[in-house]
Computed example of a mutant assay.
Amino acid sequence: MQYRRLGADGPVVSRIAFGNSLTAGNQLADPNALACVHAALDAGITTFDTADAYADGRAEELLGRALHGVDRDSVVVCTKVGRGGGPGPGALSPARIATSLDASLRRLGTGHIDLYQAHLYDDTTPLEDTMRAFAAAVRAGKVRCVGVSEWAADEIERAVALAHELGVPLVSNQPQYNLLWRVIEAEVMPACTELGVGQMVWSPLAGGVLTGKYRPGQQPPAGSRAVAAQGGDVSIRRFNFMSDEVLTAVAEAADLAERAGVTLPQLALAWALRGESVATAVIGASAPEQIGRNLAALETALDPELLHRVDAALAPVVVRDPALTLSRMLRAKSLSQKAS
């Protein structure tokens, strides 16, 4: 395992983090979910990411059970606030933060959270109120540092300015980032680099699409995330990753990687981690053995010629528009629905 500091002032994190957004308490039986966390620990993964919204809190509870008895100082526990109880007005209000934080601590079975992240931007709550609530949590010793998830560049800039005023270490952003979805490159990444905010990227394999297991014109494999009723299918299809055009381009990229002697998942993970601002990539797993296969990405050398060919194959389907940062996308959808 390799390790890197998250942002300028954050904790040292494992380059691969383990997340349980669609698995623990949801798509996996409890024993299998616990086994995946133990396999991650055995592999040297120290960083674990969850949220109050995942499986209505069950994901946090299972992570807490899995980490019971582990030296608390040897792991970095990350969770989020803002969607537990459902998104909507006041998702990041001080009252919601206070209530959700105590519930997360209880479910995780810990006295503090290493990284507490604002889950999407809440434009119904003044940002000053949200940041003051985060500052209170840090002063109380319940939170070590804070971050955001899927915020736009201007939102991050304002949050960092307030964090400095309040003495709060805002160290990270957690966006989706992969070979197909590059919306953070134009605005978010440059802003974060200047501000000392690190990237903790999620979905580096595009929900499994960049494993190459989905083929154009074919039904998804039984039991795969793309056909799961517990949210995996919605997550993948929201970003149009399952269109025949995307799957055809991914199949070409997979063939190029195979001819070069690497697997597409190894290439995709190594690509997501290549930038200096990306401290860690969050992976999930439905079986313990998947974790070891993904860790091979840390030893994968990225040949410039191969990357050029893969980029050319994927170019017609790559999404780069910064307006599609998830908080902005959902806000635009909500406004459109209200207008209609």
Rank of each mutant, 00 (worst) to 15 (best):
R259F: 00
R259A: 14
R259D: 14
A260C: 04
G261R: 07
G261N: 06
V262D: 03
V262S: 06
T263R: 10
T263L: 14
P265E: 06
Q266D: 13
Q266N: 11
Q266G: 12
A268D: 08
L269F: 02
L269T: 08
A270S: 13
W271M: 10
A272Y: 01
L273M: 06
S277R: 11
S277F: 09
A279M: 06
A279T: 10
A281N: 05
A281T: 14
A281H: 00
V282A: 02
I283Y: 09
I283C: 09
I283H: 12
P288V: 06
Q290H: 15
R293G: 07
R293K: 15
N294R: 11
A297F: 12
A297N: 09
A297H: 11
L298F: 06
L298H: 00
E299C: 01
E299I: 02
A301H: 11
P304R: 08
P304M: 08
L306I: 04
L306S: 03
L306C: 10
R309C: 01
V310M: 12
V310L: 15
V310K: 02
V310W: 01
V310A: 00
D311S: 14
D311E: 15
D311H: 14
A313M: 01
L314I: 00
A315T: 04
V317S: 02
V317Q: 01
V319E: 13
R320N: 04
D321E: 09
